[in-house]
Simulated scan of single mutants.
Amino acid sequence: MTVWVALLRGVNVGSAGRLPMAAFRAMLERLGARDVRSYIQSGNAVFRSAHTAPALEAEIAAGIAVEFGFRPSVLLRGVGEMADILAANPFAKAGADPKCVHIFFLTQPAAGADVAGLRALAARGEVFHLTDAAFYLYAPEGIGRSALAARAERLLAVPATARNLRTAEAVAQMAQDLAVTEE
């Protein structure tokens, strides 16, 4: 079985997309997931499954639509993929404050990204880095105040879901711990 990290987009943000984590974990188990764990209330889960990513992403999104009345985007990443994405974070090497670093997990490479538009929106002190798997943003004034963060997905031209660095690291560690218990 593969250990997966599920990252849901737009869950428990404001009044829309309410997804109780206990009910979400139970739904994942009904879909055949094992050893399901969730992290905070923003749609992060770690579990084992024999299904492939594309099939499982569709199953999870459809299950949420049926049980909770909305259909979020679901991105699955394996343990190795999460480790690679975290290792590619240029701001970790630069010693940036982890509270100011955000990772936008991309559904596919952002080959058509409007990089000039991203640069134009960057406020003073904001820096970003784009790879095939992620868009990394250092926003020292906070992501809530960042015009770049607010419009990044549109300018990247691919679906994405963002997590702050601490959340991404915590979920990756949960997945790693689950993978170790399997060995």
Rank of each mutant, 00 (worst) to 15 (best):
M1E: 12
V3E: 05
V3D: 01
A6Q: 07
L8A: 09
R9L: 08
R9G: 05
G10V: 07
V11C: 00
N12E: 04
V13S: 05
V13N: 00
A16N: 11
G17C: 06
G17Q: 08
P20K: 12
A22S: 09
R25T: 13
A26K: 14
R30H: 12
R30I: 10
G32H: 03
D35A: 13
R37C: 02
R37S: 11
S38G: 03
Y39S: 01
Y39H: 14
Q41M: 03
S42V: 06
G43E: 05
G43H: 06
N44P: 07
N44K: 10
N44R: 09
V46A: 05
V46P: 02
A50D: 15
H51W: 11
A53T: 03
A53K: 13
L56S: 09
E57C: 03
E57G: 01
E59N: 12
I60H: 03
I64N: 10
I64S: 08
A65D: 14
A65Y: 06
A65S: 14
A65C: 11
E67N: 12
E67R: 14
G69H: 05
S73T: 13
S73D: 14
S73F: 08
V74I: 12
L75P: 11
L76M: 09
L76D: 11
M82V: 00
M82L: 04
A83M: 09
A83V: 04
D84I: 02
I85M: 12
A87Q: 06
F91E: 00
A92G: 12
A92Q: 14
G95T: 07
D97V: 10
D97F: 00
V101L: 03
H102F: 12
F104D: 13
F104G: 13
L106M: 10
T107I: 12
T107R: 14
Q108A: 14
Q108K: 15
P109A: 01
P109F: 00
A111I: 15
A111G: 13
G112W: 05
A113L: 00
A113V: 02
D114W: 10
D114S: 03
A116I: 02
A116V: 11
L118F: 04
L118T: 08
R119T: 07
A120C: 10
L121Q: 09
A122N: 11
A123S: 13
A123L: 12
R124L: 15
R124C: 12
G125S: 10
E126Y: 00
V127Y: 01
V127Q: 15
F128V: 08
F128A: 03
H129C: 10
H129N: 10
D132T: 04
A133Q: 15
A134L: 09
A134R: 12
F135Q: 02
Y136L: 04
Y136S: 02
L137Q: 11
A139C: 09
P140F: 06
E141I: 10
G142Y: 02
I143K: 09
R145C: 01
A147Y: 10
L148A: 02
A149L: 06
A150C: 09
A150F: 04
A152P: 07
E153Q: 14
L155H: 05
V158E: 04
P159D: 11
P159M: 08
A162Q: 11
N164E: 00
L165S: 00
A168K: 13
A168I: 07
E169Y: 02
A170G: 04
Q173D: 13
M174Y: 08
A175M: 06
A175D: 06
Q176D: 10
D177R: 15
L178D: 08
V180K: 15
T181Q: 15
E183Y: 07
